[in-house]
């Protein structure tokens, strides 16, 4: 099963999210993505009005912005995306929930193809899913950059 190929390096947080999706029949996976979308946490107050602290995920069709903090080897991810772009918000929410709290090494070990493993290719379409792949790549790049400056 292709979907299980990456088992060995996947942190528990992201493995749980993946399993939650895969346990559902395909049509219901969209509802779960919508729940994630609704759960996207607000960014901390220190980010308000500081658009320059965010990086835009150009791979997404909607304006989504992410920010990464590395503090004492722990990753924190924040994201903003408009309510009118629930799919993109859902992708951001999965990564925010899945990456935040990991160590730098754990986060960098997340397979780049994680978005392809959560059973959304047919329900969402590969083209849309590529936005999440771009978001993960940008998050990991920021983590790499910030590990050395923290």
């Amino acid at each position: 099963m292709i979907e299980r190929m990456t088992e060995t390096t996947l942190p528990a947080s992201l493995a749980e999210i993946r399993d939650e999706f895969l346990e559902l029949p395909e049509p219901e996976r969209l509802q779960l993505l919508l729940e994630f979308s609704n759960e996207l946490p607000a960014v901390p107050a220190r980010y308000e009005g500081h658009q320059e602290l965010f990086e835009q995920v150009l791979e997404c069709q909607s304006p989504v912005f992410i920010a990464i903090e590395v503090d004492d080897d722990r990753v924190a991810m924040f994201a903003t995306a408009p309510r009118e772009a629930p799919t993109t918000r859902g992708f951001a929410s999965i990564l925010v929930q899945g990456l935040s709290g990991l160590t730098v090494d754990e986060a960098l070990a997340v397979p780049d193809d994680y978005p392809d493993s959560i059973g959304l290719r047919r329900a969402v379409s590969p083209l849309r899913l590529s936005g999440m792949t771009g978001m993960l790549a940008r998050a990991k790049r920021q983590i790499r950059a910030k590990r050395h400056s923290s």
Binding site: L30, Q31, E84, P86, T87, A123, V124, R128
Partner: peptide, 21 residues
């Protein structure tokens, strides 16, 4: 364009047809 937008609220009685899927 957004495959989930319909689920966040739609015109009463409307059905969704998604272009991609």
């Amino acid at each position: 364009e957004d495959v989930l937008l319909y689920e966040t609220g739609h015109i009463p009685g409307a059905v969704k047809v998604d272009w991609h899927t």
